[in-house]
């Protein structure tokens, strides 16, 4: 007997139970889509570490962090999908590369462990500031997703900070690799804090107070991350910014192969459940 037939709906909603299910407007959905794609792409990259990390505890740690991010992606994509009558799976598995709105930092290949830690340091700091601000959004659903995510990404930042110090203050060799990791990641920092067309579109139609202006988050990032890097005996890279464009569907060559792997099963068996 299949009891799941009795489930009429399972809305993720910040509203009280008496209210009807929340539906995002097109403009809010476009904004949520970008945030959801960021979380989804980074979650997939972290999942690639499982069975490959330097020690078992890190397999578990990076897997756990990825799982939290996947949870954020599910909430955000589910919410975005309410505007277009598409499910989280439709959005994750049945869009092509140019339809993804993730910032380019998140699709970077993992590189070595130090490079992943460098990306985690930058990503986690960004997420902490983003979700702290988004938890005050006038959109109740986005605020609820953000308030929950904030608690989790704070824990992720702690993880990357500890490894930054261990590797930076470890041996000459670990220091060198941590520095190289920062060098690879650094050109992608600027894009994180550059304009989000979907956020600007919301503001333009008078829905200000819903999206977070990421440009305003940069001072908090600059106040923390360079200090952590220096405290770990490392140097803050001075490098020109990469081209950017993730929010308008421009991606590096790394995203396509990643999506091919992520989507192949769902596309080979459309509609399958497991």
């Amino acid at each position: 007997m299949n009891h799941s037939n009795h489930v009429k709906s399972t809305a993720i909603t910040a509203e009280s139970i008496a209210d009807s299910s929340v539906v995002a407007s097109d403009a809010v959905a476009r904004y949520a889509l970008g945030l959801g794609d960021d979380a989804l792409v980074l979650a997939h990259r972290l999942g690639e570490w499982i069975t490959n990390a330097p020690e078992l505890e890190e397999d578990v740690a990076l897997g756990n962090i990825g799982l939290d991010l996947l949870g954020h992606a599910r909430s955000l994509l589910t919410y975005a999908g309410t505007a277009w009558d598409r499910s989280e799976d439709d959005l994750a598995y049945f869009r092509d590369e140019s339809e993804f709105r993730s910032r380019q930092l998140f699709e970077l290949p993992n590189g070595d462990f130090a490079q992943t830690i460098a990306r985690q340091l930058v990503s986690s700091t960004y997420f902490v500031e983003l979700y702290r601000a988004l938890s005050l959004s006038r959109d109740a659903t986005l605020a609820a997703i953000a308030a929950k995510a904030f608690k989790e990404v704070s824990y992720h930042l702690d993880h990357s900070t500890q490894w930054l110090q261990r590797l930076g203050l470890g041996t000459e060799y670990s220091r060198e690799r941590m520095q190289s990791g920062l060098t690879v990641v650094w050109p992608f920092v600027a894009e994180l804090f550059s304009a989000d067309p979907a956020a600007d579109a919301l503001d333009a139609v008078g829905f200000d107070g819903i999206a977070v202006g990421v440009e305003s988050l940069r001072p908090a990032f600059d106040a923390l991350v360079p200090r952590l890097i220096v405290a770990a005996g490392l140097t803050v890279p001075e490098l020109p910014a990469a081209r950017g464009g993730g929010r308008v569907g421009i991606h590096s060559e790394a995203l396509g192969p990643m999506l091919a792997e992520m989507q192949v099963l769902a596309r080979a068996h459309p509609g399958a459940t497991w």
Binding site: S4, H6, V7, K8, T10, T13, I17, A147, K148
Partner: peptide, 26 residues
Amino acid sequence: RDDIVTVLASAGYEDVTVRTVLAPAW
């Protein structure tokens, strides 16, 4: 969520909606 529906269905409750609520955060 599935277990809640199963338990309630066996007690005769057929029209069950399980809603996941995020706020306030657990």
